[in-house]
């Protein structure tokens, strides 16, 4: 029995599933991380993922090709990022309430539009989603090939987002400005850089990444759009950002660790299903996120200006 639980770990399917589950979390976590590094908490994440999932899928269903669908999802995410920034950065409205408002709005308008475009379909229609691509040579490796090199283009793209965000944050003047905007906006202002503009751009890019995380669900992990399919992944990403102490590389680690536990949970459920009710396994991701936050809490050092609106010419 114990042996069965360990055997899961040497199963290539388990590792492949871990990679798949990590993708939407990774994209969403990186997106939230960008926003928070700039000093803006974006609780619109859950709704932005939902509308990204809906728009990307619908674009493809309406006849666009997959890459256009991905672009459409990123654009709708960016648009909601702009709305969030308009409220929180320019108007100085509460970041908490704005975020919850955006989540409620983005998911409900997405459902409304989905029902308008596809009225009364009982069985959800499907699209031809991203197909697995075998990476030459590597995909033929025993075990490693099946686990890591037979994924969809979207999956590879999601993992490429990590070096992209690392490069953006650590190697470009924009990234430096984002970090200063989140730590000490006055210093940025003193350099003659537009704090509000930098924050807005960071929220737009971050929100586009979140929407891609949602689109991954409908365009790569599954091939249909369901109501409530994001199912708390956005909130888990917010927890992962804290767990990762706002570092992209640790976000990758966090997303993989989390996805691994989730993938393991599904397999353990099959092994122990008769003894432990499945609901307890489904609780694990949410409980683990809370535990991760508590563990990280001691060493947590929030970006100093997180939640603080910046007004030109005012002292803080």
């Amino acid at each position: 029995m114990i042996f069965d639980f360990l055997e899961v770990l040497v199963n290539a399917g388990f590792w492949a599933a871990t990679i798949r589950i990590a993708c939407p979390l990774l994209l969403a976590t990186l997106g939230e991380l960008m926003c928070e590094r700039a000093g803006v908490l974006n609780l619109g994440i859950e709704g932005i993922m939902s509308i990204g999932a809906m728009v990307g899928w619908t674009a493809v269903y309406m006849g666009a090709d997959l890459s256009t669908g991905v672009m459409a999802a990123a654009l709708i995410g960016a648009a909601f990022g702009l709305v969030h920034a308009g409220f929180t950065v320019y108007l100085g409205a509460s970041q908490h309430v704005t975020g919850i408002g955006i989540t409620l709005f983005a998911s409900s308008i997405g459902y409304f539009a989905f029902r308008l475009l596809l009225p009364s379909s009982t069985t959800p229609p499907k699209i031809t989603a991203f197909q697995p691509i075998d990476i030459p040579v590597l995909s033929d490796l025993p075990f490693l090939g099946e686990a890591f090199f037979q994924h969809t283009a979207f999956t590879y793209l999601a993992f490429l987002a990590v070096p992209f965000v690392l490069w953006l944050m650590n190697r470009t003047p924009f990234g430096l400005a984002v970090k200063v905007a989140g730590e000490n906006p006055m210093a940025l202002e003193a350099q003659g850089i537009d704090v509000l503009g930098v924050r807005t751009l960071a929220v737009i890019i971050g929100s586009a990444l979140m929407a891609l995380g949602g689109a991954y669900l409908t365009m790569s992990a599954f091939d249909a759009f369901y109501f409530g399919m994001v199912n708390g992944r956005g909130w888990i990403a917010v927890a992962l950002v804290i767990f990762a102490s706002w570092r992209p590389s640790k976000a990758l680690l966090g997303a993989l660790l989390f996805a691994g536990l989730d993938a393991y949970q599904v397999r353990a459920q099959q092994l122990a299903g008769a003894i432990v009710p499945y609901q307890f396994f489904l609780m694990m991701p949410y409980l683990l996120s809370i535990v991760a936050m508590v563990v990280a809490a001691k060493s947590t050092r929030y970006p100093k200006a997180l939640l603080t609106p910046f007004r030109r010419g005012e002292r803080h």
Binding site: V97, G101, I102, S108
Partner: peptide, 18 residues
Amino acid sequence: PTYLADVIVATTVLAVLI
């Protein structure tokens, strides 16, 4: 679509904030 009600509720939050 009945989701209109949810849209109205969500819009309310954002409109009150503005």
